[in-house]
């Protein structure tokens, strides 16, 4: 899927995009009265999926939201039909991390959503040089599964999914 060779992220390494544009974080979701009412069924909605995706960028101590890689308008969920679609936008068209970011998003959703959901993760059309190839990789169940067998790749994905702390 991705070669794990170019993925070393340490203090001394050169960043591909050292000074990216940053975007404001949307605030915490406001609690509504119906969410506290035991009798009401809350459907899974776009915002909920978006909140699940507060993932760290592998390059920056910033979340994908702050880098505008993931936006709420590009997250689509249909609870009744059990489908989720997420479009993500790499910060630069040649970002070599695109596959890794997509993989992290996919893994996070696999871990966080009920089994019944069909998950589709792909690049926002027209925002990456090798868009088609990356999308194809992310859609291929077997290749995703194989990628996660690779322990050094899994390590980077897990780091992205760890809650921020040092």
């Amino acid at each position: 899927l991705v070669s794990s060779g170019g993925l070393k992220m340490s203090g001394g390494t050169r960043l591909e995009n050292a000074n990216p544009v940053i975007f404001q974080r949307s605030g915490e979701r406001l609690l509504t009265a119906s969410e506290e009412d035991e009798d009401v069924h809350d459907p899974i909605d776009d915002r909920e999926i978006f909140d699940i995706l507060s993932i760290n960028d592998p390059e920056h101590p910033l979340s994908l939201e702050e880098l505008n890689v993931v936006e709420q308008v590009r997250v689509k969920v249909n609870d009744a039909e059990s489908t989720v679609g997420v479009e993500f936008t790499p910060t630069i068209p040649h970002c070599s991390m695109a596959t890794l970011i997509g993989l992290s998003i996919k893994v996070k959703l696999l871990r966080s959503l009920p089994d019944r959901f069909k998950i589709d993760v792909h690049i926002t059309p027209g925002t990456h040089a090798s868009e088609e190839a990356v999308n194809k990789q992310l859609a291929d169940k077997e290749r995703v599964a194989a990628a996660l067998e690779n322990s050094s790749l899994l390590e980077v994905v897990n780091q992205c999914l760890s809650t921020r702390n040092i």
């Binding site: 322990s151 899994l154 390590e155 980077v156 897990n158 780091q159 999914l161 760890s162």
Partner: peptide
Amino acid sequence: FLLGSPGGR
């Protein structure tokens, strides 16, 4: 999930 997984904990 992170428990006992590489890069997790």
